[in-house]
Design a protein around this nucleic acid. Structure first.
Length: 444
DNA sequence: TCTGGGGTCCTAGGACCC
DNA sequence: TCTGGGGTCCTAGGACCC
């Protein structure tokens, strides 16, 4: 592998909640949660909300009483705002080093080689400078974890967040081995990056209960008994770099390999017609994202299912795949394919709770598309009828209108106009930073 | 007709992440 | 009444080929 380099993980504390607080300072110090798309469950909580016992992903109906009982504030997720705040935060962090990898909306890795000698400051001191500038310029509080691998940086970040005494920055690279072991012994194995809810109990069964236990485990045994991915985590914990997170801030955006659009419904759907409409909408959104990254899809899968949470409903889940020949980025073709696919798996008498459309086998739109009878070419059987119907131009117009006037301005009739199945957020804050009409200014 | 080893491609499903 | 919406990587097994 390459030579070891210290790397920091910088992430926003309760990121979505912190974004809301920037524009509503009255929320500081109050328990606050941000709810998922459907106002279904909590996807971000402030420290005050955590102190009330609210869990990540906890359903809203279970915690709603805390509004009255504890002054909990709940807001609908405003992803437009969070994406813009994220861009600002990442830009500020990017000023601190040339090699930044943006890992998620609120996290980025930053390589710190050469920093220690630069101003006589320690890596931890440098981390404090990053925190201070992000807080001052963007208004978002952060924590910083520093290690010799991504997994160590994640671990350090976890510790920095959990324990007050680190003041928001934990640097494992400066720690004597004994102290490092003590620290890792106190981190539960389930809190290690790469260990999920499936593997954690199985690891404990074989006596691996802490991050230290996992670091001392035999990677060969782990690869055999668990997975090669987890074996990499073991080596990363020991300081050997062996994973790659991508997200190089300087690189071209890497196109997705699959695109999934799915939603749960506000009420169970029983009719095939409603499901058809919902799937058309998902297909349309997926197709739009497909075009945005300049790809065509060679295959598509749909799934429909009942709620796994409602014991009284008959459990049902079905999926079906179909090829798109030739590969396409045309919304209409994709919608037609989902509807054919639905006819293949729809079963009456089921209370459908969720459905989705996945596009895969994605390929660049500008290569290898030699259709036998291109639209409008002489020789195409329907050549005469296809004049003025260039699908690429039509799709471009569709995307441009929706980008200019907001998602859903123009859509195909197949997606339905009623959309009684759609959840509507009820607690949405304004898009303060990205919409002129919603700027936070006093109005006459 | 039978035989074998080795390769590729595809798909489904499991595990993880935020 | 009420439980997110995205993604990635890896593996195993089957089909098919030489």
């Amino acid at each position: 592998m390459s030579r070891p380099r210290p790397v920091a993980l910088i992430d926003g504390n309760s990121f979505y909640c912190s974004c809301e607080r920037v524009f509503r300072p009255a929320l500081l110090g109050r328990p606050l949660v941000v709810l998922s798309n459907n106002d279904g469950c909590a996807i971000a909580r402030t420290a005050e909300a955590k102190a009330l016992g609210i869990k990540m992903g906890q359903p809203w109906f279970e915690i709603r009483r805390l509004e009255r009982e504890a002054g909990l504030v709940a807001l609908s997720a405003n992803f437009e705002l969070y994406a813009d705040m994220s861009d600002r935060m990442m830009a500020v962090i990017g000023q601190f080093g040339p090699d930044q990898h943006i890992y998620s909306i609120d996290e980025s890795f930053l390589f710190l080689d050469g920093v220690a000698g630069r101003s006589g400051s320690s890596l931890a001191g440098y981390g404090q400078q990053i925190r201070a500038r992000v807080l001052q310029w963007v208004g978002i509080p952060t924590c910083v974890g520093i290690g010799m691998t991504y997994t160590q940086a994640k671990l350090a970040n976890h510790v920095a967040k959990q324990r007050q005494h680190w003041a928001g920055v934990c640097d494992l690279t400066a720690m004597p081995p004994g102290a490092l072991a003590t620290l890792m012994r106190e981190v539960d194995v389930g809190d290690v990056w790469g260990v999920g809810r499936r593997f954690a109990p199985r690891l404990r069964e074989v006596g691996i209960a802490s991050a230290l236990d996992l670091a001392r485990a035999d990677p060969v045994m782990i690869a055999g008994a668990f997975s090669v991915v987890l074996a990499r985590t073991v080596r990363e914990l020991c300081g050997t770099s062996c994973i790659d997170v991508g997200g190089d801030a300087n690189a071209e955006t890497i196109p997705r390999k699959q695109i999934l659009s799915s939603r749960s419904f506000s009420r169970p759907l029983l009719e095939q017609g409603e499901l058809t409409e919902a799937l058309a909408e998902f297909a349309e959104r997926a197709a739009q994202r497909l075009r945005a990254q300049g790809s065509r899809a060679g295959a598509l899968q749909i799934f429909i299912r009942s709620s796994p949470f409602r014991q009284q409903d008959k459990p049902f889940s079905a999926a079906i795949s179909t090829r798109l020949i030739p590969a396409t980025q045309d919304t209409r073709e994709i919608v037609r394919a989902t509807q054919r696919a639905l006819r293949g798996i729809f079963r009456p008498g089921i209370r459908y709770a969720k459905a989705g459309v996945m596009l895969y086998d994605l390929q660049a739109a500008d290569v290898g598309q030699l259709e036998l009878f291109p639209v409008g070419e002489p020789g195409r059987p329907d050549g005469a009828a296809s004049r003025g119907r260039d699908p690429a131009a039509l799709m471009q117009t569709l995307d441009a209108l929706n980008a200019r006037f907001g998602r859903g301005t123009v859509k195909l009739a197949g997606a339905g106009l009623e959309q009684g199945w759609r959840h509507r957020p009820e607690r949405l804050t304004p898009a303060y930073t990205t919409d002129w009409a919603q700027l936070p200014i006093a109005r006459a």
